[in-house]
């Protein structure tokens, strides 16, 4: 029995280190390509329901809103970790998940320097894929 437990623990530690190394590799491999920034003046690609968006920013006097396109966010359970992780950031004021169009809205304070890599990583560690981020200044 103890032999089994020892073997189990050894393999778990090996797996953990390997998976974490793999995550780092996934993350680092995109760092250079994310710096590309372009303007999306009218926001037409975001297809956010204007009423939902107005409702979301209601009461937010100043700050920034990240509109994030997500792949793989097909169920409520899938999005739970995303919401929890964003709220760990004290500069995040509000999070809204729209499963129907696969988008997440995140309202930050105006002090927050938004890092797209950081946003992407939040989705990565929750098992989804962020494909596009639009940032609106309020």
């Amino acid at each position: 029995m103890y032999k089994n437990i020892f073997l189990f623990m050894t393999v778990q530690l090996s797996l953990l280190s390997h998976v974490q190394a793999n995550d780092m590799q996934d993350h680092n491999s995109h760092n250079h390509s994310i710096g590309h920034v372009h303007m999306d003046v009218d926001g037409s690609k975001s297809k956010i329901d204007p009423d939902k968006y107005k409702n979301f920013i209601k009461g937010l006097s100043a700050g920034q809103v990240a509109i994030i396109d997500v792949k793989g966010m097909v169920c409520d359970f899938c999005a739970r970790g995303i919401e929890k992780t964003f709220y760990d950031d004290k500069e995040v004021k509000k999070v809204s998940v729209d499963l129907g169009i696969g988008k997440v809205l995140v309202a930050y304070s105006k002090l927050k320097k938004i890092d797209v890599d950081e946003i992407k990583n939040i989705f990565l560690i929750n098992g989804q894929t962020a494909t596009k981020v639009i940032i609106n200044q309020l």
Binding site: I34, D40, G43, T129, A130
Partner: peptide
């Protein structure tokens, strides 16, 4: 003001390490 960042698809998960060696413990 509005900025858009296009994020390329994630890299393919390297799963080669998950071999038969680990099959019996999962």
């Amino acid at each position: 003001m509005r900025y858009a960042y296009n994020i390329p698809p994630m890299g393919i998960f390297k799963k080669a390490f998950i071999s038969g060696t680990f099959l019996f413990i999962s």
